[in-house]
């Protein structure tokens, strides 16, 4: 395939070499225009469906709402209400709690899995196969994956039945489903992949001779792990962290579904307001959430240069 295409490319373009020159000159206006043209579709989509919506949300967050409609205005009442309410602080606290616990668990699992794949599997085919095995669930439906915990965690579910059969408990545990536990379990289930992939990616690029050098100098396996592998894996960990933290902080559906609507995070606060058609209030909460997420990412990005790590 490649061969024939190359042949065609050669025979199809007998023109003079000089004609191809300008394209090679790199920087300058020409490259800029070419780059702009090629980047235009992406830019347009992001302007229309990312920048404009955020601008709209920021605008609407200063509007007023009646029961039936929203009215353009410039008032801080949405923000005053938001910051004046205990609920806001509790819900933001809950959001950070979900994010930090999920982050710790996904990091522990993700790092271990990536370490196993990168350093203990010797054949490359096997490595790719097992890596795919870990990533396939990412391409299936999150909602179905949440639903599939019901038969496990329900009052008469597999977990409770098993524990009762083993005589560990007499009564079914009530906190398995529709609880913080269930929410975090689902987060870990859904998002560990986002930690495994970037960590695995950076681990695969560690020069194996560094590990040999560590061993030749008498480092134990654990010392190599802590002093060689861990520092070199930091960029991957940071990228995974950004994914997991932002996904969890922005979530509303997992919390609603896995807590049976009994728990709340910021995303649910927004979606509840939307359900009540209180768009200005939803927008104000969304703005605060966005700022929070951006601050967190800003802090994390100080530790890593994403473009270099791809």
């Amino acid at each position: 395939m490649t061969e024939t295409l190359t042949d065609r490319a050669i025979s199809g373009a007998p023109g003079d070499v000089a004609a191809a020159r300008p394209a090679r000159r790199g920087a300058g206006i020409g490259a800029n225009v070419g780059g702009w043209l090629q980047a235009a579709p992406l830019t347009l989509v992001l302007l229309a469906f990312l920048v404009a919506p955020i601008a709209m949300i920021v605008t609407v967050s200063f509007w007023r709402a009646t029961e039936f409609s929203i009215i353009p205005a410039f008032s801080f009442e949405n923000y005053e209400f938001l910051f004046g309410s205990d609920v806001t602080y509790r819900v933001f606290f809950a959001t950070f709690k979900y994010a930090s616990i999920t982050w710790a668990v996904t990091l522990a699992i993700g790092f271990t899995v990536a370490y196993f794949l990168a350093f203990h599997i010797r054949s490359q085919t096997m490595q790719i196969a097992l890596f795919l095995l870990c990533t396939i669930p990412f391409w299936t439906s999150n909602i179905i994956r949440m639903i599939s915990w019901i038969p496990f965690l329900g009052r008469n579910g597999i977990a409770n039945q098993t524990l009762i059969d083993w005589g560990v408990i007499d009564q079914p545990l009530e906190w398995l489903l529709y609880s913080d536990f269930a929410v975090i379990l689902a987060f870990v289930h859904l998002y560990t992949l986002f930690m495994v992939v970037p960590v695995f990616n950076t681990m695969m690029r560690i020069d194996k001779s560094l590990l040999e050098a560590a061993r030749d100098n008498g480092a134990s396996g654990l010392q190599t792990l802590v002093h060689v592998i861990l520092p070199l894996t930091k960029p991957g960990i940071m990228i995974g962290t950004i994914f997991v933290v932002t996904l969890v902080m922005g979530d509303f559906i997992t919390v609603r579904f896995m807590s049976g609507s009994q728990k709340a995070n910021v995303g649910r606060l927004i979606s509840n307001d939307i359900g009540l058609l209180q768009y200005p209030s939803a927008a104000a909460t969304a703005v605060v959430l966005l700022c929070t997420v951006l601050i967190v990412i800003g802090i994390l990005l100080r530790f890593v240069n994403i473009r270099k790590e791809l």
């Binding site: 919506p53 955020i54 709209m56 949300i57 979530d251 927004i270 979606s271 969304a286 990412i297």
Partner: peptide
């Protein structure tokens, strides 16, 4: 990384 609900709402 933007929370999805912001896109939806906006």
């Amino acid at each position: 990384v933007i929370p999805s609900i912001l896109i939806s709402l906006g």
